[in-house]
Structure formats: C-alpha cells, structure tokens
Simulated scan of single mutants.
Amino acid sequence: MDRTELSLLDLGFELPVSGTDAVSGWSKGTSYGDPDAALDRVVAHWFNLPRWHGNAHLTARAVDGTPRLVSAGRSVYEADGWKITLDVRPDHKAVFSDVRQADVYVMTHVMEIRRLSGNTFTAAEVTPVLGALHVGLSFALGRWVAPALPVGQNDQGQTVWGQWGPMLCDPARRISSGWWYPEDQASLADLLGCLLPAFGDPHRERTLRLQMQYAITAITDRGFVEQRIMIGAAGLEHMMWQELVLSGRLAETEFKSGRWPAHRKLRAVLTDAGVELEVYEDRLPAAATFAARQQVDGDRQADSADVVTRVRNRLVHPKETQEPVYSVKGLVTETWLLTRHYLTLLVLRSIGYRGAYQDLSRTNRWVGETERVPWA
C-alpha cells in the first residue's frame, strides 16, 4: 500500500489517498482549501432522496440542447438565517427504476446553501447546517441519505473550500419507512426550522444527533426486529433521562430507584407529550392480547408503556422467560412499531416541532395519511 496524493482537477488542491496500485485505492476523507475563506455559497450533491413536488419549476436541457421542463423540481427552504435550495435531477424517475436491486446509490438532487442576508460565511459556520440536513432528513425518512462532496465558492464563483469524506448512506429505496410524508413540504420546512438552530448549538447538537441516530436505526424496516427494539429502547432511555433527570424533575438516585420502574418513567414522558397510551385491539391485536394478560399495580389496566418495557425486558434479561413474548404471534413486531413511534415523537417534541407526522405504530394507514403531533 502506497501513500500518495490525488489532484482535484484544475483546482490546485491535493488530497492524501492510499493506493493499492496505480489505478485503485481509497481516501479516508479530508477537507481542502482555506477553512477561513469567505464563502458565498456551498453546493453539494444528495444521494438517495425520493422525488417530491417542490415549490418551483426547473428548466433543463437535453443532450441535444432541447429545453425540458422539470415540473415542481425545485424546493426552497428558509431556516435560521439560511436559504437552502434543492433541485431534483430531471431523470430521477428513470434512475430510480432499478432501486430494488441491492446496494444501489443514486445521486438524486443538487443542493445550494446561502445566507438569507446575502452575507458571506465560513466553512465552520456551514458545517453544522450540513450535519443537521444529513441527520435530519435521514431521521425524517427512516433511512440514511447523504449530501456528498460539498464545495464552497466565493463571490467570484471560484472553489476555495471543499470536503471529501465517507457519509452514512443506505441503499436507495422507493418507499420511506419514516414519519415524514415527502409530499408534505410544510412539515419539512417546520423540521428544518427546528433542526438548524439545535445543531448550531454545540451543547444540544451532540445529544440530538445521538438520539436521532437511535431513532433512524429503530425506524428502519430492515434487520432483526429484536435488534430494532433494543436500539429503540436505548433511545427511549436516553430521552427519559433528558426529560426527567436533566430537567430537574427527578434526582438521579430517584430515577434509578425501584419506585420509578421503566414503564412508569416512559408513561410519564409520554403523558407529558400528550401521547395516547391505550392499546387498541383493531390496530395492535397482539399487543392488546399481551396487555390483557399483564398484572399491574392498583386498579389501572396495562397500557402500551407496560407492553414496550416488559417485552423489551423479556428480550434482554436472561432471567426473564421469553415464552410469553413469542407465544403471542406478532407481538415482537407490534412492540417495535410502538417503540419507534414513541421515540420519534419524543425526539420531535424535544426540538419543538409542531407539524404533521405519520403514525409509525400503524401499518394500515393510507399513503400520505398524517396528523398533527399531539402537543400541537
């Protein structure tokens, strides 16, 4: 293996790479150019975003120069002092026709980021915006999508900064597993309005990024269901700690005491968010059957907080027999649906989102069927 440098076309920048031979190798990623340069705009290319109808039309040109209208191909968002423009590629439908194949990655959109005021900015100022868009859109879609190879240009149109690096990105899919319906542009604008300020705060960014990473893994409909439940449960634990301990509502010792078992803590934060906890037999028959068999303290009936925490405990702790879980057909799947639903809602509430969402605990809803978040 040889260490060498890769020249970036005519830009005058060299990137360190590791080569196995004269024609192949890899790069671990790096930034190039001047990180303190005054940038007029940043351009990046998105991979694996779905096609949605934007708020403006585009004009493209075919190979022979013939003009071509791309209906509703541009989406423009304004949030936290930034203007973000996303243009879909004209042949999106054609390139997405083979996404059922394994490991397909498609460049689907071009993005431009500018200051709303028209002022310049630095790479350090725009990096949190790129991070928020990467994690935020992935959280909304329930799978990793990525903005790749961002370049910064000055007011003369010269490239003065750029970034090469590996980005988390799942293979392209036609159908989203996420809570956001891609045709609902108002909700995406609301999400960005909450996300960008949060990611701009270094104290909030780390926590929120971790919570969204938990949620993305829990939301996706691939892999073992038990794995998704456990990742989602870890995310719920993180949210409960934030909402109950860091807020000052409970002391750390009280949070860990037997007086506050997992179901009570989860019930508390969900109730604060206005989330309904009743298990309906017509929506979640297996969970309803399991809940009816549970013994609880007092006169109350077992609810979805009991279902989520008790199933998770039986899956994780060897001393708990797993027979009551697997004897109810469909219970593990419905527990996953509830877990991802609750984690999604708690993350959205933590950033102040008040728009619409798709209920991830339901599998029998219509395409595009959304509702307002409970606390709205």
Rank of each mutant, 00 (worst) to 15 (best):
V70G: 03
S27N: 04
V70S: 00
Q211M: 12
Q211F: 04
P35W: 10
V63H: 10
L188H: 03
T4P: 00
T4A: 14
D64T: 13
R174S: 11
L246N: 09
H341Y: 15
V151C: 10
K329P: 00
S176A: 15
R264Q: 14
C194P: 02
D359A: 15
H203G: 05
M111P: 03
W180K: 05
L315M: 13
A148V: 14
D34L: 07
L210T: 13
R115D: 01
A292E: 12
S187D: 09
G248I: 04
L196H: 03
L133M: 11
S97K: 14
D2V: 10
S350Y: 06
P16V: 07
T217L: 07
P197Q: 04
E334V: 14
P90C: 09
R68S: 06
N313C: 08
L8G: 04
R314M: 08
Q156S: 12
L210K: 11
A22V: 08
W46F: 10
V311H: 02
R365S: 11
N48Y: 03
A356S: 09
A286G: 08
W144K: 05
R354G: 05
L6Y: 13
P16Q: 08
E334N: 08
K265H: 09
E205P: 00
Q227P: 01
A287E: 01
L266G: 01
R222D: 12
A22N: 11
L69H: 07
A94I: 13
P374M: 13
